[in-house]
Amino acid sequence: MEDDNVLATTKQFLRKNGYHYKKRYIRPLITPDSVYIFRFGKEKLNNRIILRYGHGWTGRQKIKEIDLRLHKQKHPRIFKTERSLLKYLQTHLEVHEEKLHEEKMRKLGLDK
């Protein structure tokens, strides 16, 4: 399937950092665009990327919008390119995972 190269760099980044992911394609009936839902996480798949894309007249994929919602975020972060998404993930995912780990330790009563 040609859509397998969508977010290929992001998938490599997540696999390299120990994240699991699950993908699903949606083809809405009303619009010509496709939607790619990508759920990921280390233990639970509680983070989500929603990619809206279409195809140009040459058949190439054109990303319209990438929405990223990390666990417990109220509003999604919106990106126009995969490169900007990766830049955000590289800087914020580590900090986000540390916060989740601290919350988990606090619930277990193992905090200092």
Rank of each mutant, 00 (worst) to 15 (best):
M1R: 09
D4Y: 04
D4F: 05
D4A: 06
N5A: 03
L7N: 00
L7K: 00
T9H: 08
T9Y: 07
T9M: 09
T10V: 05
T10L: 01
K11A: 03
Q12V: 12
Q12W: 05
Q12Y: 11
F13L: 14
F13E: 06
F13D: 04
L14C: 06
R15V: 12
K16L: 12
K16N: 13
N17V: 07
N17S: 13
Y19F: 15
Y19M: 10
H20S: 09
H20W: 03
H20N: 09
K22N: 11
K22V: 06
K23H: 00
R24C: 07
R24Y: 02
I26D: 14
R27I: 05
R27Q: 02
L29F: 06
L29R: 07
T31P: 00
P32C: 03
D33C: 01
S34D: 06
S34L: 04
S34V: 02
S34K: 10
V35F: 05
V35K: 11
V35Q: 08
V35C: 08
Y36F: 12
I37W: 00
F38Y: 04
F38E: 01
F38H: 02
R39C: 02
G41Q: 03
G41T: 04
K42G: 06
L45P: 01
N46K: 06
N46R: 08
R48L: 12
R48Y: 03
R48M: 09
R48F: 02
I49C: 07
I49L: 08
I49H: 03
I49W: 00
I50S: 01
I50V: 12
L51A: 02
L51I: 03
R52S: 09
G54F: 01
H55S: 04
W57P: 01
W57V: 00
T58Y: 00
R60Y: 01
Q61I: 06
K62W: 01
K62D: 02
K64T: 04
I66A: 11
L68I: 10
R69G: 07
H71N: 11
H71A: 10
K72G: 00
Q73G: 05
K74W: 06
K74G: 07
H75M: 14
R77S: 06
R77V: 03
R77P: 01
I78E: 11
F79W: 11
F79P: 09
K80H: 13
K80E: 13
T81G: 01
E82G: 05
E82P: 05
E82W: 03
R83W: 13
S84K: 14
S84Y: 07
L85T: 14
L85N: 13
L85R: 11
K87F: 11
K87I: 08
Y88M: 14
Y88F: 15
Q90A: 15
Q90E: 15
T91I: 12
L93D: 10
L93A: 10
E94F: 11
E94Y: 09
V95S: 13
H96P: 07
H96R: 09
H96W: 12
E97Q: 15
E97W: 12
E97T: 14
E97Y: 12
E97P: 11
E98C: 12
E98I: 15
K99T: 08
K99H: 11
K99C: 11
L100Q: 15
E102N: 15
E102P: 07
E103D: 14
E103V: 09
R106Y: 07
K107D: 06
K107G: 05
K107N: 04
L108Q: 13
L110G: 13
D111Y: 07
D111N: 08
D111S: 10
D111L: 10
K112I: 06
